[in-house]
Write a protein that binds this DNA or RNA. Structure first.
Lengths: 156, 156
DNA sequence: CTTATATAGGACTATTTTAGTACTATATAA
DNA sequence: TTATATAGTACTAAAATAGTCCTATATAAG
C-alpha cells in the first residue's frame, strides 16, 4: 500500500483546520468538534505535533495550540516525520545494523536515491497548499537522467 | 516511517539478482542461495511478481522464473504495487467510502496530488537503475509552482 | 509411463505495528 | 483557590505483516 498512518492523516486534517485561523489558539476540544476526530486521538496528535515544534502549546485556562510557523513554512514531510518518525522506505534507511544482509547489499544506495526522491516530493507540499483548494490535475516530478548513459543524474 | 514492507524490499533484491542474468531461468532455490532470503519467503515473493506479470514462470524440471520485460521496462512503482497492492498515501485514495469524513474532507484532493508526486518518483526508477552501481548523490525532484501565486502548478 | 523437480494456490499462525484509551502531573487564567 | 487545558506515560485492543506449510499441477528426462 505504501501509505501514511491514520494518525498522520488526522494530523493533516487538524493542521489544515488550524491553518485556517493561524492567529488563534485552538483547544483540543474545539478541534474535535470541528473535525469529527475523537478527542483522545486529537489530543495524541496535537502532542506529537507540539513536540516536533510544528505547533506551539499554551497550557491552562484559555490555552490551546497554534502554528509555530507560517503555513507555507511547514511541509508534509515534517508532519509525517513528527507522527511516524524518520521517513525511510526500507529498514536500513532509518536504523542501520538491523538487516543481516546489509554488508552484502547491492541496492541500499539505490533505495537511498528513491528515498530522497520521495522525500523531496513530500517536502515540496506545505500547509499553505493543503489549505488552498485544489486547482491542479497533475504534478510534474522529474527524475533527471544523463543524456549519454540514461543513468539517473548525478548531483551533489 | 512511511516505508515499504519487507516483502517488497526482498522483491527488489530478488529482481536485482535476476536482472543480472536476464536471459536465464532462476529457480526459487537458486535465489535463496544467492540472496540469503529464506526459501518460503522467496517463493512467496516470486509468486506475487509472477502474478503481476513482472516475471514469467516455467514449471517443472529445469523450470524457474525470468523477467517478463527488459530491466529498464519494470519500475519500482510496479514492484511495490505487485506486492502491496495499489499505492495510495491515505485510505480514501485506494478504497473510497471507508472514511466517515470523506464527504466533508477538504484535503482529499491535495492528498491525491501528493500521491501522484510520490508515484511519479517511484515510477522513474527502473530495475536497470537498481542493477547499476550508485553513482549519484542526489535526485532532483521538482514540484513546479506558478510564479504569480506560488501555488502548485496546474498541468493536465 | 514414471519419477524427480519446480511452480500455483491457498490456508494458517505468530509477530509486529498501529490505533485508541486512560490516568496522573503540571501549568495558567480568573 | 478553582476550573481548564496541555504533558507525559502506560496500557489494551485491533489490524496488518511476515513467515510457514500443505496440496495440486505442470514439465523434462529417463
Amino acid at each position: 500500500m505504501l501509505r501514511v498512518s491514520k494518525l498522520t492523516d488526522y494530523a493533516t486534517v487538524i493542521l489544515t483546520h488550524i491553518a485556517h485561523q493561524p492567529d488563534e489558539l485552538h483547544a483540543a476540544s474545539d478541534i474535535t468538534q470541528a473535525t469529527g476526530v475523537a478527542l483522545p486521538t486529537v489530543s495524541k496528535v496535537l502532542k506529537f505535533l507540539s513536540k516536533a515544534n510544528i505547533l506551539t502549546s499554551h497550557r491552562g485556562s484559555k490555552g490551546g495550540y497554534a502554528l509555530a510557523n507560517k503555513p507555507n513554512e511547514t511541509n508534509v514531510a515534517e508532519v509525517i516525520t513528527a507522527i511516524e518518525g524518520p521517513i525511510g522506505m526500507t529498514e536500513c534507511t532509518t536504523s542501520e545494523g538491523t538487516c543481516e544482509q546489509e554488508s552484502s547489499c547491492e541496492i541500499k544506495g539505490n533505495w537511498n536515491l528513491i528515498n530522497r526522491a520521495v522525500y523531496t516530493a513530500l517536502e515540496a507540499v506545505t500547509l499553505a497548499d493543503m489549505v488552498a483548494p485544489v486547482r491542479q490535475q497533475a504534478v510534474n516530478v522529474v527524475m533527471p537522467r544523463t543524456k549519454e548513459t540514461n543513468e539517473l543524474k548525478v548531483e551533489s
